[in-house]
Amino acid sequence: MKPATFTYHCPSNLEAAVQLLDVIGSEGKIIAGGQSFIPILNMRMSEPGCLIDIHQIKELKGIRVEDGVLKIGALTTQRELEQHDVIKTNIPLLSEATQFIGHVQTRNRGTVGGSVAHADPSAELPLCFLALDAEIVIHSIDGSRKTSINDFFVTYLTTELMPEEILTEIHVSLSQFNGYAFEEFSRRHGDFALAAAACLLSVGETGKIENARLVLGGVEAVPLLAEEAMRFLKGKSLSDETLERAVELAVIDADPDTDLHASKEYRLHLAKVLTRKALLKAYNRGLQKEG
């Protein structure tokens, strides 16, 4: 398994990269960590004429906090995200979810921006960033623009990024949620998830849920925001009945495909089980922090 031939460009800054993208357009493909992309190249499922390797672009590296907004550079590795103290303290959902991404050896190279731009519907980071209502910063030769993650994912492995554009940063507001949980099921640890759930709750003193975010993965062509369940949970304590109703509402819009790995029914079953676990865990964590 060897990739087909391609030309290779390694721009040293963002300006050079967007100029290249403007000239090369859809012939080119950006390579960051390559942990999903190189297997695809090795198996020749994709044969782009040209690769633009962005690893030297310093502007895309690192995590910083500015005006209460966490700004994650696209080239931040998944391992850096997993171990970063600011993330552990402020957005523990990300640290928890990152441990499910592949293995230490792939997280050492795989990047945050790469995961989001690759847009696998069962991948962990797209789920989390949708739960966190992140903003995506995109650059092209015409300058930069911001887009809500709600509009970013189009379908399987497809985002609204245009061929001449590059994802440069992900912005997340520092969390006002005190409860969080990430749950997923895969046949073997590190494999693609059959289904996954990310949950954020803000639980008040009386045990009432003030705000809820719930996202399911592996059940649709894009990460699925469970809006009905989120609305339903607002203002309620998590009794057994509330939990069961929220689980039912969470999968109301889910329409998973049957494939070699799991049937539609099994994926739906998993989605419900994982939603229940995530809601309970997030709620209990929220209560503990509150008390």
Binding site: M1, Y8, I38, N42, T106, N108, R109
Partner: peptide
């Protein structure tokens, strides 16, 4: 496996364990 699953080709790249089949030599 040459697609990042088996881990046989793991080397240390700048001190970090990575799969050398998931990198190009130019990188």
């Amino acid at each position: 496996c040459e697609h990042g699953v088996c881990g046989s080709c793991t080397v240390l790249f700048n001190g970090k364990a990575v799969r050398s089949c998931l990198m190009f030599a130019v990188q």
